[in-house]
């Protein structure tokens, strides 16, 4: 099994930390992992993306051109990455702020309105965990128990009291993701 994922959105949406939690979850599941950010001078508001690879085998290139799954969280990233999903792959996107919806017919498209849901849960910070939940629902590459272990590893101890809230957000994401027909 090799799963090549790109997560792309605005800086501040938790794109990099979502990728980190996914990578840590992979470590907990004894997988090979790589996490490669596009780092830039931009912080909040700029574009941010991260390539995460989970595999049973040794990982060759951490930098890719095509992905099994693209998780897209703003319009710029949609414009950039829709065409880079492998045929038969998965595209997951948050509808918030998207004016040009994905049009490809050779991939499976899911929509998750995580921005809206995070607002409803009155916790903007859980946004990325809602998205992660949606992804794990449609592609359970890592077991939930390993995700929780991954969360513990990637969060500093002073934030461990937030783990139940994150778990709740992941579960909520699993409920609200929908396939776009």
């Amino acid at each position: 099994m090799t799963e090549e994922i790109i997560i792309a959105g605005f800086g501040g949406q938790g794109v990099l930390s979502m990728g980190k939690i996914l990578a840590y979850s992979g470590v907990m599941q004894d997988l090979e992992v790589s996490w490669m950010p596009s780092y830039g001078p931009e912080m909040r508001g700029g574009t941010a993306n991260v390539t995460v690879i989970l595999s049973d085998d040794k990982i060759s290139s951490p930098v890719l051109h095509e992905y099994d799954t693209a998780i897209i969280l703003n319009q710029q990233s949609m414009d950039k990455f829709e065409s880079h999903v492998k045929p038969g792959g998965i595209l997951i996107y948050d509808g918030n702020g998207i004016t040009h919806h994905p049009t490809r017919k050779d991939i499976t498209i899911y929509r998750i309105d995580a921005t809206e849901e995070a607002a409803r849960m009155r916790s903007a910070k859980t946004f990325n965990m809602i998205v992660l939940g949606g992804y794990l629902k449609v592609n359970p590459v890592v077991k939930m128990e390993n995700v929780i272990k991954g969360l513990k590893k990637s969060l500093p101890e002073r934030h461990h009291h937030l783990i139940p809230m994150n778990e709740k957000a992941i579960n909520r994401g699993m409920e609200i993701i929908n396939k776009v027909e």
Binding site: V33, S34, W35, M36, P37, Y39, P62
Partner: peptide, 10 residues
Amino acid sequence: DGVIGQMMEK
């Protein structure tokens, strides 16, 4: 280089 410096692996 920046790739190996910034990427995370086990």
